[in-house]
Simulated scan of single mutants.
Amino acid sequence: MEFRDLKMPYQKYKHEIDGAIQKVLMKADFISGAEIHVLEERLAKYVGVKHCISCANGTEAMTLVLMAWGIEKDDAIFVPDFTFFSTGEVVSLRGATPIFVDIDPNTFNIDTSKLEKAIKSVIEAGKQKPKAIIPVDLFGLPADHHEIARIAQKYDLLVLEDAAQGFGGNINGQKAGSFGDAATTSFFPAKPLGCYGDGGAIFTNSDQLANLLNSYKVHGKGTNKYDNVRIGLNSRLDTIQAAVLNVKLTAFIEHELADINQIYKRYHERLEGIVGVPIIPEGYYSSFAQYTIKLENKIKRDTLKTRLSEHKIPSMIYYSKPMHKQEAFRSREYDESNYLVANALCDTVLSLPMHPYLVEEEIDQVCKIILNV
Rank of each mutant, 00 (worst) to 15 (best):
Q153N: 13
V47T: 03
Q262W: 11
I103Y: 04
P322H: 07
M316I: 08
N234F: 15
R266L: 14
D75S: 10
G200A: 04
D207R: 12
A190H: 08
P353R: 03
A328C: 07
T204G: 09
T223S: 09
L193F: 10
D137Y: 08
R236W: 10
L157R: 02
I293Q: 01
G88W: 10
L352C: 01
A182K: 04
M62F: 09
P130C: 08
L158F: 13
K294A: 08
E362A: 00
A342H: 01
H324G: 06
A28H: 09
I202W: 13
L237S: 07
A243Y: 10
M26W: 09
F187G: 03
K294W: 09
P192W: 14
E35M: 10
P353Y: 07
I363N: 00
I202F: 15
I77F: 13
Q128D: 05
A132C: 09
L233G: 01
V349Q: 06
T184S: 08
F288K: 02
F188G: 02
S351G: 03
H15E: 12
Y334Q: 05
E254A: 07
G140I: 13
C195F: 00
P130S: 06
K305T: 00
L39R: 11
N57F: 15
E327F: 12
Y155R: 03
A190S: 09
F82L: 12
Y334E: 06
D238M: 10
S331H: 13
G169W: 01
S113C: 05
Y46R: 13
V229M: 10
H324E: 06
I279K: 15
K248M: 12
F82D: 02
D5S: 03
Q153H: 15
N372A: 14
R230L: 14
P189D: 03
D207E: 13
